[in-house]
Design a protein around this nucleic acid. Structure first.
Length: 260
DNA sequence: ATGGTAGTCTCACTA
């Protein structure tokens, strides 16, 4: 089963690119972030026609997450359990009812704007709720793929210019510690398992010719419970969508989960 | 300390 995560930066603006990518790469499950629309505005017919079931947790203008699946989608959870006061649509989780069922989540971690800012505090608080959820799912023992835009570079190897960006947002020690805490529960970074070379990115700023200079960051991740990691056979970053006209600033990260 | 670009019920805000 091929599972991918992609921050599309508006499902409406990106629809032709997304349909083309679904056709070309044929993922079984897609975890989308920054759909930027209420559920009524989601292009469900066009994507449904490609053979996908859809679960949505959208909002107007900002945020918005979704799960697409060629298999039935069950037990949909919208928002992080326990974090009920959060009105930002940044988390959706569900069970993919394939022959070997697998839990998935699409997570859009707040960017945080600047280290020490109010938005940065919101980011750290959000991450604490993610950690709590990760602990619960880990304890269940089930196979799970927690994918999304984490807005954190795990290491300096994941940064085009670590000196320039030292201790800035997306690269700070405090954020990386939160990500380490998640990993130390017992989750596996699917991409790193098969790609040990550094400086392979999933996001490039629209500005300053970042894509052409390969000035990117690796901030989109697929984190797997042991039961999922045991079945992991490949993972990669699909750079093609970032090179297209009207591209998102992020590109898909994918993994293959073998049958149990 | 600033600029660069893209998206959105826009002329401001978020990323």
């Amino acid at each position: 089963m091929k599972i991918a995560t992609w921050n599309v930066n508006s499902i409406k603006a990106r629809l032709p690119n997304i349909l083309e990518w679904l056709h070309d790469s044929s993922p079984d499950v897609v975890l989308l972030q920054e759909t930027k629309t209420v559920d009524e505005g989601f292009p469900a017919m066009e994507i449904g026609d490609m053979g996908y079931n859809i679960a949505l947790h959208g909002q107007k203008t900002y945020n918005g997450v979704a799960i697409l699946s060629k298999y039935p989608i069950e037990d949909v959870e919208r928002g992080l359990p326990g974090n009920d006061d959060d009105d930002q649509a940044r988390y959706i989780e569900a069970l993919i009812a394939s022959p070997d069922p697998i839990r998935v989540a699409s997570i859009y971690v707040p960017m945080g704007t600047e280290v020490g800012s109010e938005k940065f505090a919101y980011k750290l608080n959000f991450l604490n709720w993610v950690i709590t959820r990760f602990e619960t799912i880990f304890a269940s023992g089930e196979a799970a793929v927690m994918g999304g835009d984490y807005n954190i570079t795990p290491d300096d190897d994941d940064v085009y210019d670590p000196e320039k960006l030292h201790e800035t947002v997306l690269c700070s020690t405090i954020e990386r510690k939160k990500l380490r805490t998640m990993m130390n529960i017992g989750y596996t970074d699917a991409f790193r398992t098969f790609n040990t070379a550094g400086h392979q990115y999933s996001w490039w700023d629209y500005r300053a010719g970042a894509w052409n200079k390969d000035n990117g960051l690796r901030i989109d991740h697929l984190l797997l419970t042991p039961a999922a990691a045991d079945r992991l056979s490949a993972s990669g970053i699909d750079r093609d969508p970032r090179a297209k006209e009207k591209a998102s600033d992020h590109t898909p990260v994918w993994c293959l989960i073998d049958d149990a």
